[in-house]
């Protein structure tokens, strides 16, 4: 029963792996700088490690938005998010699993008459807007510094190529770790409080139930990467991500840094301890970070050739995706409870 209930989350994880791994290794694989097998292995491994080690922060935020308290409810919420992502992808609209899961949880809140924490929602919505802006800023600064550095050191073209390859692998690993840490909340966050997995003790180590859950979610993402992301990575060259390998290095590094900023509990606590503004630990969209990163480089180069329409589509997605997911979630919860007699909410 538990695995059936987790299936919707695992499907969401598979879909995330299939689509979002291209945001990390897309250009490297598309331009044949790195072999797909190497990229998939590294992405799958580090997404899972990131999910298990650093996945708690963003997951707690989703829990604060709406405490889904029944296994049937968690299944339906994840299913609604997965269906919204699939539907919007088929309509070729920019979509993010982070935005779909938030809408879906709010749909559950409405259906079960549970209050939505508007302060948390405000923080989440602000993060969606600020994260691509931050990625653009990081990307612009890193790009300027990187360009000046390359000009100063005068490396041979072939040496730059080899350094870029190594750099793409390093930032890819970093990006995969951060993606797992940040986006595992979308895949498994709603199941945390309802799946009764016990802590696992082995050789003096304790693996908590939540970490086991995140590990399973990480495996689903890794499966998505291995089974379906090749096509996405290899076709990514002709789309938005058509970047030179050096520009891709800058974009993926910015993406990884922003994902990490919005996921790391340790960094969050340190920033707060030093009296610095800490970013909320919120699941954000890696695709939108890439767009922000590309935009940052585009602006440094004078802003020619930037497709401003893409930005308006993203902004529309901030509203359309959660609304659609919320409506689907509400309808599915109604069907699950009244047609399949599923318990979608526990006693509050």
């Amino acid at each position: 029963m538990i695995f059936f209930s987790l299936s919707s989350g695992l499907f969401l994880g598979w879909s995330l792996g299939a689509n979002d791994a291209a945001n990390i290794f897309g250009t490297a694989v598309g331009s044949r700088m790195i072999r797909f097998r190497t990229a998939a292995l590294l992405a799958g491994l580090f997404v899972t490690i990131g999910a298990v080690i650093s996945g708690a922060g963003a997951s707690d935020t989703l829990g604060a938005l709406g405490a889904v308290n029944a296994l049937g409810g968690a299944f339906t919420v994840a299913l609604a998010a997965a269906l919204s992502v699939t539907w919007m992808t088929r309509l070729k609209l920019p979509v993010s699993t982070s935005q779909a899961i938030v809408g879906s949880i709010i749909g559950w809140n409405f259906f079960t008459h549970n209050p939505t924490d508007w302060h948390v929602l405000k923080n989440i919505a602000l993060s969606w807007v600020t994260s691509p802006i931050l990625a653009a800023l990081f990307s612009a600064v890193i790009f300027i510094a990187f360009r000046a550095y390359l000009k100063r050191i005068r490396l041979h073209l072939l040496h730059i190529d080899m350094h870029t390859r190594i750099g793409l692998i390093m930032v890819g690993i970093m990006g995969a770790y951060s993606l797992g840490a940040n986006n595992i909340a979308n895949v498994m966050g709603v199941f945390v409080s309802v799946v009764p997995l016990r802590d696992f003790h082995w050789a003096g180590w304790v693996i908590t139930g939540r970490e086991i859950l995140f590990f399973i979610g990480g495996l689903a993402i890794a499966l998505g990467i291995f089974t379906y992301s090749r096509k996405v990575m290899e076709t990514v060259g002709g789309s938005l991500l058509k970047l030179t390998p050096t520009a891709a290095f800058v974009v993926v590094l910015s993406e990884a840094l922003v994902l990490f900023l919005f996921s790391s509990v340790t960094l969050h606590n340190h920033l707060q301890a030093w009296g610095l503004p800490a970013l909320p630990l919120v699941p954000i969209s890696s695709s939108q970070l890439v767009i922000g990163g590309v935009l940052g480089i585009g602006l440094v180069k004078g802003g020619h050739g930037i497709r401003w329409r893409v930005l308006t589509e993203i902004a529309a997605g901030w509203i359309a995706t959660p609304v659609l997911a919320g409506v689907i979630s509400f309808i599915l919860l109604f069907i699950m409870r009244n047609v399949f007699a599923m318990t979608v909410a526990g006693a509050t």
């Binding site: 331009s31 044949r32 700088m33 073209l157 190529d161 080899m162 390998p245």
Partner: peptide, 11 residues
Amino acid sequence: QSLIPEQRGDV
């Protein structure tokens, strides 16, 4: 050695 894939043709 699939080197400089972006500039290989140019070089």
